[in-house]
């Protein structure tokens, strides 16, 4: 019956539009500070790697490729934090884990095998050239993602604490 359709869809549609606040949670409070720092690192690592890849990729292909990867990871986390919501939380968590793994692996490699990295990346020496922020940021991000207020849709699925 075509007449029944509006009635069936109506309430659901209203529900979706009625609570725009639902998505908030990741980019507010302490999350706002993280958004600012991830924005800085996205712009910084991104513009730096575009410039390096465009002008002198041959000098240090590994370092410059890693810089580009780092920039993409920062950008993904930034977007996820700003968007908020359940899926974004998962994406941001995966991004922060990847970022932490990246800074630990690349940081160790640059100390063990410095010749593979003729030019530095944001993750070189555990981010020492960037006040160790690349090392602190993913840890702070993961802590915040655990504590950030949930949007209610997945709150029951996780054990308290």
């Amino acid at each position: 019956m075509p007449d029944a359709r509006p009635d069936r869809d109506g309430p659901r549609r209203q529900e979706q539009q009625g609570e725009p606040e639902q998505r908030e949670g990741l980019g507010t409070g302490p999350g706002r500070l993280l958004v600012a720092l991830y924005a800085v690192f996205t712009v910084g690592a991104g513009s730096r790697s575009i410039y390096q890849l465009a002008t002198r990729f041959d000098e240090a292909p590994l370092a410059y490729t890693l810089s580009a990867v780092a920039a993409v990871v920062y950008a993904v986390i930034l977007v996820a934090l700003v968007r908020g919501g359940r899926t974004s939380r998962r994406i941001a968590t995966a991004g922060c884990a990847l970022e932490l793994a990246g800074v630990l692996i690349v940081g160790t490699l640059t100390l063990v095998d410095p010749e593979a990295f003729p030019d530095s990346t944001v993750w070189s020496d555990y981010g020492m050239g960037y006040l160790f922020i690349p090392l602190v940021l993913p840890v702070a991000g993961l802590l915040w993602l655990r504590r950030a207020p949930r949007d209610g849709t997945d709150g029951a699925a996780r054990p308290a604490g």
Binding site: T28, G29, P30, G31, R32, L37
Partner: peptide
């Protein structure tokens, strides 16, 4: 501008970081 949207201590922290 971010601190205008964030009327908590974290707005101040964001400006400090900037």
């Amino acid at each position: 501008f971010m601190s205008l949207a964030e009327r908590t201590r974290w707005g101040s922290a964001t400006v400090a970081a900037g």
